[in-house]
Design a binder for these strands. Structure first.
Lengths: 228, 228
DNA sequence: ACCTGAACACCGTTCAAGT
DNA sequence: ACCTGAACACCGTTCAAGT
């Protein structure tokens, strides 16, 4: 009777494709062509394998993307978090934001997916940091969850809006914007008409952290309690 | 020589399909089957016409969706806005939110689309109201644009996250959540572990307006100026 | 056990031809 | 001027058969 720990030759055809290889190839394709152009068929072709082969290593396309996100989440470097609770919330949230800004398609997938229940321990570390910061500031755990959720909404919205408007327009966004605000009804929409083309200049500005500070200040003020 | 205003018979085959008919059918299909299931082919079949016919009445699918959104935006009933500037911002933003919550796919399209430059005057009225409220509170026009953008990020994020998590899970979200927080590393993630299954209870709560108030308070505080 | 091509059930869009 | 079917260039996924 063979020892339980002894390496035993497994039966059947040996694998030529591994899950790690698939994930690496997918990352390469996303970084090269963009996430909306990633298809199972192209991914298989890139690896040099039949499209149907991939279904032996991942459940389906959604599963593949989730694996990819968790792998990415483990590689996100966590900065030293400040001791001051409010600042800790800000830095943790900004870290989540920056990680997603570099890989906006992840925000898209996480939004369409229930998300938190399927994240690994490593990316959850930043969620924990936000909740812990709120609690240390004096919030109840319940309020801390609400703080995190509100920040998450703001963060995900910023990523999605900005990544999508950055893709298009660029060249003709300003022109179109200009034409648009030219024909606007100044009687009904006086402030927008007065802003005119300045909107196009203001809109692409990176104000994420400013808005985050405003939001966190407001959220923590709502949940502050007297501490002993 | 015929009079300029006289109705003249136009040459060619008379139309059997109108843009209004297409939009109405599209609305019906979206309300019935959900926006992710709307296809050009199904829409044409619903009308009882060849799929390619639609391309004589709309440029492409994206154009169709934008027409639909502007039509919808015109039908959104605008509540009486309060005089107090801060409250006006809240009510206008909440109106945008509620309109999108009823038609979450519109939020999806608006996010993926530069959006504001392609909206009609009617839906822009609520954008104007937010900007005007901020200015009346004492913000510069530039700060008011930032106020609107921040609110927009938060609003769109909330809609997308909530509409997507509502679609899935339901039945098994709680179970999965419970299983998840059972296996969480309590050493590394103490707050999340302590929350346990309560997260699943807290997450679906509608806290949009609370978070909006926190955000608006913070944003207006940042931009407040001394007024004469 | 792993890999495969054929097939299924779809997409959005173009375009030459018909009415 | 309007409508059409055929065709193009794709999708994700299943499944029986091969190694």
């Amino acid at each position: 009777m063979p020892h339980a720990d002894a390496p035993r030759p497994r039966p059947g055809r040996p694998p030529t494709t591994s899950r790690a290889q698939i994930l690496a190839a997918a990352r390469g394709l996303i970084d090269r062509d963009g996430w909306e152009r990633l298809t199972i068929r192209k991914l298989a072709a890139e690896i040099g394998v039949g499209a149907t082969t991939l279904y032996h290593h991942v459940q389906d396309k959604e599963d593949l993307l989730l694996l990819l996100i968790n792998e990415y989440g483990e590689q996100v470097s966590r900065p030293r978090l400040p001791d001051e609770p409010r600042e800790r919330v800000i830095v943790a949230a900004a870290t989540i934001h920056d990680a997603l800004a570099a890989w906006p398609w992840a925000a898209e997938v996480l939004t369409t997916d229930g998300f938190i229940a399927r994240l690994g321990d490593s990316p959850l570390g930043l969620v924990e940091a936000v909740v812990a910061g709120a609690v240390d500031h004096g919030c109840t755990p319940e309020h801390a969850v609400y703080v995190f959720r509100s920040i998450w909404y703001y963060t995900v919205g910023e990523i999605l809006v900005r990544s999508h408007t950055a893709r298009r327009g660029q060249g003709d966004a300003v022109t179109r914007q200009g034409a648009f605000f030219g024909t606007i009804d100044a009687g009904k929409l006086p402030h927008l008409a007065a802003l005119g083309d300045r909107w196009a200049v203001l809109a692409p500005r990176d104000t994420y952290v400013d808005g985050l500070r405003a939001l966190v200040d407001g959220l923590l003020a709502q949940g502050a309690r007297v501490r002993p």
